[in-house]
């Protein structure tokens, strides 16, 4: 459905070049939930902006449903929508909910009664009461606002919805409600999701396939089940084991990696992860490892390629 090839996004700040996204390939299949996971600064948000046409690409190409994407025209706009993290910032406080929801359809020149019909249908789908349209965003709680944001994304009946951290700003007791709603909508409407998240437990629960990003590059990608069952890249391993489990009997595993994510302004040479990697060899500091298929998973690591990592494990 959506294909990205060798996407790069470099931009300048204070005369320095930030390599936010540095050669990413992605293929999202119709009907699936594809998750993009990584820590802050890994480039996942920039990649989201690129897909939405909100950030320019330096190099590479994109195609949607087989057609190359060069200009973000209205036809594409109808087919890809987004739900952002912060339900307070995504709704204009000065507009009524019905205006917020209708705006995408107005922009595409739909007739008045078409909009009204769709409005009622979508509000019912996300579980909003019919009188909600006459209220303003501040009259809703965070969870309800996120329902409104989801409803807005559904108005144009898109094929792909980009979910940018859709539940991380919500209260813990609300998160499951929204997550279940998103799953129901997918089952009912056959929408494809691109889920961008930092929460690995959420990614494991909600996605079919996953790509792990580190400093602008994908280090490992494949079926979610496979990757969580046997992560291969040292970074994926560290990331998964660092997640604090809601189970006090599991000991904290903190010895996997040290240090912090390097800067995207001057990323390390070779493999971007090598300064923090416990298994690095000489080659890692010099050459950047390509994504190589190993069973159903693709991994970008020299050490795994040479088969030495199993010893280290």
């Amino acid at each position: 459905m959506l294909n990205l090839r060798a996407i790069k996004c470099h931009f300048q700040t204070n005369g320095q070049i930030v390599r936010a996204v540095d050669g990413v390939n992605l293929d999202i299949v119709k009907g699936e939930t594809f998750a993009l996971v990584g820590e802050s600064g890994c480039g996942k948000s920039t990649l989201a902006k690129i897909i939405l046409g909100l950030a320019p690409i330096t190099a590479g190409s994109m195609s949607f449903a087989g057609e190359p994407l060069i200009k973000f025209n209205k036809r594409f706009r109808r087919r890809v929508q987004v739900v952002f993290q912060d339900p307070y910032s995504s709704l204009n406080p000065r507009l009524k909910v019905s205006t917020i929801l209708s705006e995408p359809m107005w922009a595409h020149g739909f007739k008045r009664d078409e909009v009204t019909q769709r409005l009622e249908l979508v509000m019912a789908l996300v579980g909003l009461q019919t009188n909600a349209g006459n209220l303003y965003p501040h009259e809703f709680s965070g969870g309800q606002r996120q329902r409104i944001a989801i409803a807005r994304a559904l108005m144009l009946a898109p094929e792909l919805i980009l979910l940018d951290e859709p539940i991380s700003a919500l209260d813990v007791s609300i998160r499951a409600q929204i997550l279940n709603l998103l799953q129901d909508l997918q089952d009912e409407l056959n929408i494809t999701y691109l889920l961008i998240a930092h929460d690995l437990a959420l990614v494991q629960h909600a996605s079919d396939r996953v790509a792990v990003m580190y400093l602008g590059r994908i280090v490992e990608t494949g079926p979610t089940e496979k990757i969580f069952a046997s992560p291969q890249h040292p970074y994926t391993q560290a990331l998964i084991s660092a997640v604090p489990e809601p189970d006090p009997t599991i000991a904290r595993n903190s010895n996997l990696i040290r240090g912090e994510v390097a800067s995207a302004i001057e990323p390390p040479t070779g493999c971007h992860f090598h300064p923090r990697c416990p298994h690095k060899i000489d080659r890692c500091t010099k050459e950047s490892p390509p994504l190589v298929a190993r069973e159903q998973v693709q991994v970008s690591c020299w050490v795994i390629g040479s088969g030495d990592l199993n010893v280290a494990k």
Binding site: S173, A176, L179, N180, L200, Q204, H205, D247
Partner: peptide, 20 residues
């Protein structure tokens, strides 16, 4: 209601507390 790593959810639904 919290998803966990290592526990298979089989794309099932999470338990959710109703209301706000």
């Amino acid at each position: 209601s919290v998803p966990r790593i290592g526990i298979k959810t089989e794309r099932g639904r999470l338990f959710s507390i109703p209301g706000t």
